[in-house]
Amino acid sequence: MTDTILLEQQGAIALLTINRPEKLNALNYEANDLILKHLDEIEKNDALRAVVITGAGDRAFSAGGDIHEFAESIKAGPDIAVREFCRRGQRMTGRLEAYSKPIIAAVNGLAYGGGCEITEAVHLAVASETALFAKPEINIGIPPTFGGTQRLPRLAGRKRALELLLTGDSFTAVRAYELGLVNAVVSPDKVLEAAFEMAERILRHSPHAAARILSAVTRGLNTSIAEGLSIECEQFARMAVTPDVHEGLNAWIERRAPNYDRVQGKYEVRQL
């Protein structure tokens, strides 16, 4: 393993950087595996409460999968290509989507293919005004493979997603904002700052409540409203037995800011 993915700790925030700027931060197999490895490490570290993911340099967030690498898998046959390329990428984006801590993409340049699919999968995203997005897989004769045929229609709507998927045309950060792919568009020099500022706004609150919200939204999104409401009740019940709830309620009654750090270690998850 190399420094294909950098992991830094900045206070309570973990910064993951896709570090292949000479390849426009293309996602080779090592990068996919290292993202998963680092996410496991971050999840076990209670001091880290949010994640920002970005790309090295000022040209690209990620230009997508490493074509030279996955082309060899395709040449080896569909079974190997599905195992080595498709499922590997889907594991990574699925992990990002279902992660228990907030993940914010700081899209600092090109977000093509797999880079766009990471943006679709994470919970929140900030993009540079100069960022450019695309679903270009059709240009090389394949559909998206890291979840793009499924997540983009859910974010943008079927017809708008299909236009991007079937043409392969690039689109701007402003268009990505209009489609619901990113939360904010900022100047290029403010992308990381804006992502960290968004993370800090989340960190004011109970980390366990944030985890319950993430779980309820992710699990409920593709269910019926009745099933979703049941999931919501389940997540509420898991929080109702924790010290965080009492700290939050007491702080509100006492007109003070809650201090969730002092109740850490007293948290207990009740399986329902």
Rank of each mutant, 00 (worst) to 15 (best):
V269C: 06
L24R: 01
T145W: 11
A199K: 06
I213E: 12
A111D: 13
C233T: 13
R151W: 08
A237C: 01
P207R: 14
L164H: 13
K159Y: 15
P144A: 03
E22F: 00
L249G: 07
N25Y: 15
A98S: 01
L221E: 10
E117A: 07
D244L: 02
Q150H: 08
Q9G: 14
L181C: 01
C116S: 02
A26K: 10
T242E: 11
G265P: 14
Q264D: 01
L24E: 03
G94R: 00
I253E: 11
T145D: 11
A56V: 03
V269T: 02
N45V: 04
A76W: 10
P78Q: 07
G141H: 06
A98C: 00
F171I: 05
G168F: 02
L221V: 12
A184N: 03
M92E: 04
A106R: 09
C116H: 07
R255P: 08
G77Q: 07
E234A: 09
L27T: 00
A26F: 03
E200I: 03
P243S: 04
S62G: 04
P136A: 09
M92Q: 09
T149I: 15
D66W: 07
E232R: 06
F61T: 02
A14M: 06
R212A: 14
V82Y: 03
R256K: 15
V82D: 09
Q9D: 07
V263P: 05
T242L: 08
I253T: 04
L181K: 02
E254R: 05
R20E: 01
V107Y: 12
L132M: 12
F171E: 14
I80H: 07
Y112A: 14
T130D: 13
L214C: 08
Q235V: 02
L179H: 02
S170K: 11
K75I: 15
E268H: 02
A216W: 12
R160W: 04
M92R: 07
E8Y: 11
S73Y: 02
S187P: 15
E8D: 04
G180R: 05
E72P: 08
R238V: 13
V241Y: 12
E178S: 06
N45C: 13
G64Y: 07
A26D: 05
Q10W: 04
V191H: 00
M198R: 10
N28Y: 11
T145Y: 11
D79S: 10
N222F: 13
S128D: 03
R49Q: 11
K135N: 06
A251M: 01
Q271N: 02
E197D: 13
A134I: 03
V186A: 10
R219D: 09
T119M: 00
K37R: 06
L27D: 03
E178Y: 09
T149F: 01
Q10L: 04
I80A: 08
P144H: 06
